[in-house]
């Protein structure tokens, strides 16, 4: 892919707590999001997917701290912004304007005591000071129509909406300022399967129309294979494999990716047997030495418990990366 990068993360480290009781949630994350692309981020619970999303937007709540690394946002003109060194005011202006988030808790993401109207327009008030009240309302109506909700629901309170409607309101809210990047943190996990499909279809349609870049976080890799251009797979706070969606699907190089793929039924294609991954994800405070996956890996051999494999292209010239000692 030759598209220019829009978000580059390099060497990002995040700890929860400091000193002896602190644990490292993200280790040396290098990741690039290109303009107009859908990047899928997959992994089990506790692998650091959401932590990565929060760290990039500096929304980590204590005791989470960013202990190292860089996050750069590249404006369409080419100007680059160091997100981690923005002042609080600059950060406020940056958030939602350039990068918005759809959070995983569709049920609790809306303020229960304010109407949909008030929550859709306050972001306009904050970022577009010159906008008049009537224009804000018109924009809010437009946004609701965009996600397929009739404009008369503007006066509704969150408890009067269904879960699917709430999540669509959140998506409408995320698009209010037409940001360049939208991070979706498991946007459909709280919803039933039919609603998941509808929301995803809506997202694909909106992305084609508005051409924003997406970081899509989920543990459902079959969803990603259908929906994303590129997939990064996380395990124990590291990215273990990164490749195009079809490549991951056809030819996963990391045993963990392979395990993930065999844990979900594919939505299309031939039937395969579901095997799952033996064992359970490691605890952050007791991370195995070497490759964190080796205790659960059926193919582990002598370097695995000793040394951490480096994320690199398995063969020179390939546009994919894997962190595994297995020869490919």
């Amino acid at each position: 892919m030759t598209a220019e990068p829009i978000l580059t993360i390099s060497g990002l480290n995040v700890d929860y707590g400091t000193g002896a009781s602190g644990v490292r949630a993200l280790r040396d994350i290098d990741l690039t999001l290109h303009r107009g692309e859908v990047l899928g981020l997959a992994g089990e619970s506790g692998s650091g997917k959401s932590t990565l999303a929060y760290a990039v937007t500096r929304l980590l709540s204590p005791p989470g701290v960013i202990t190292g690394g860089d996050v750069h946002y590249h404006r369409p003109g080419g100007e680059s912004i160091d997100i981690l060194s923005l002042t609080p005011d600059e950060l406020r202006a940056f958030r939602w304007q350039e990068l918005s988030i759809v959070f995983q808790g569709a049920m609790n993401s809306l303020n229960p005591v304010h109407t949909v109207h008030s929550q859709l327009t306050d972001v306009l008030t904050a970022h577009r000071p010159g906008m008049r009240a009537a224009e804000r309302t018109a924009r809010a109506e437009e946004l609701l129509n965009l996600v397929g909700i009739s404009a008369d629901r503007l006066a509704a309170y969150p408890h009067q909406l269904s879960g699917g409607m709430r999540q669509r309101v959140m998506i409408a809210m995320a698009l209010a300022l037409e940001p360049e990047i939208v991070i979706m943190d498991e946007p459909t996990t709280a919803l039933d399967v039919v609603m998941q499909r509808q929301i995803l279809r809506k997202l694909v349609e909106l992305r084609e129309r508005l051409s924003f870049s997406v970081v899509f976080i989920t543990h459902d890799i079959s969803l990603l294979i259908e929906f994303s251009d590129r997939i990064a797979i996380m395990y124990g706070g590291r990215i273990v494999e990164q490749a195009g969606a079809t490549e991951i699907y056809r030819d996963p190089r990391h045993p963990y990716s392979e395990g993930l793929l065999h844990s979900f039924p594919a939505l299309h294609g031939p039937r395969r047997e579901l095997t799952g991954i033996p064992g359970s994800p490691p605890h952050l405070s007791a991370m195995p030495t070497g490759c964190a996956f080796h205790p659960r890996c059926g193919k582990a051999f002598e370097p695995c418990p000793e040394r951490v494999p480096v994320l690199a292209a398995p063969e020179a010239g390939q546009d994919r990366e894997v962190a595994c000692w297995l020869p490919h």
């Binding site: 202006a93 304007q97 988030i101 808790g105 609790n108 304010h114 972001v123 904050a126």
Partner: peptide, 29 residues
């Protein structure tokens, strides 16, 4: 620690608005 307060932060609203209109408005009930 409610999600909607986190959303309000992510929306880049002023701290006053997040504190009063989102957090305190619900906490005062």
């Amino acid at each position: 620690s409610e999600d909607y307060v986190m959303v309000a932060q992510a929306k880049g609203l002023s701290e006053r608005r997040v504190m009063f209109s989102y957090a305190a408005r619900n906490a005062v009930l």
